[in-house]
């Protein structure tokens, strides 16, 4: 993010040499140090030896599937992982996110999209305590006082709406799956009650978005979940 400080190291795990080269070009242009691995096992080795700051992981690896790499990895590392997938693999995306991936990117993707994801993931995960007030657009959230303001005026949120907003804020820029939210807000038994989430999201958008039907910040990720986008 800041090219002056020692460059963040990103490991690209993909079996396609062209994709690796393209990612290297794009990421190095953005000021990151890039290492490559051409398979799942090589990737795991590299993570153990180099402890990179971020891993870009292709799901369709020949030797050890991306999902399996992720499962093994999550046994001992919290390194942020960005998944690369092709379209029509919603189930796999969700499985990867549930297995501990932090975000995903669908091939083919643009350079801008990639950089935005990487930036969001490399930002140190904010916590309630070290960030008393979070803002996006014209909305500010005061975590200590549990107060939400839009254009300076206080917005009344129900506890669930506040909880929903907080989860998205804590993962700002990153996708949060329906399941993750439902489990956190309603408990593990409510994972099927996705309509709860839809209804509360509609209410939340009505309260914090300028045009609730065309949200700018509380974005829907098709079939996966929601993402809070700052701009």
């Amino acid at each position: 993010m800041n090219p002056v400080s020692p460059a963040k190291e990103i490991l690209v795990v993909d079996d396609e040499v062209q994709i690796r080269r393209l990612l290297r070009l794009t990421l190095e242009a953005a000021g990151y140090a890039v290492r490559e691995a051409d398979g799942g096992r090589a990737g795991l080795d590299e993570i153990i030896r180099r402890a990179p700051d971020l891993v870009v992981l292709d799901l369709g690896l020949p030797d050890l599937g991306g999902l399996e790499v992720l499962r093994q990895l999550r046994g001992w590392s919290r390194v942020p992982v960005l998944i690369l997938t092709v379209r029509a693999e919603e189930t796999e995306k969700i499985a990867a996110l549930d297995a501990g991936a932090d975000d995903y990117l669908t091939k083919p993707f643009g350079a801008g999209e990639l950089n935005a994801r990487v930036r969001a993931m490399l930002r140190r995960a904010p916590t309630e305590s070290d960030q008393a007030i979070a803002t996006f657009g014209d909305v500010s959230v005061d975590f200590s006082a549990r107060v939400v303001r839009r254009q300076g005026a206080e917005v009344k949120l129900t506890p669930r709406e506040y909880g929903l907003l907080k989860i998205l804020l804590l993962h700002r820029g990153k996708v949060v799956t329906h399941r993750q939210i439902l489990r956190e807000l309603w408990g593990p038994k409510s994972e099927e009650n996705t309509h709860y989430l839809r209804v509360h999201m509609t209410h939340l958008r009505q309260k914090v978005e300028a045009d609730p039907h065309r949200p700018r910040h509380l974005k829907t990720e098709s079939g996966i979940g929601y993402r809070l986008v700052e701009e």
Binding site: E90, H195, R198, S222
Partner: peptide
């Protein structure tokens, strides 16, 4: 198909 609750606005936007 994985049927789930959908919001028409979300759908149209996407």
């Amino acid at each position: 198909p994985k049927l789930d609750w959908c919001d028409a606005h979300d759908l149209v936007n996407a």
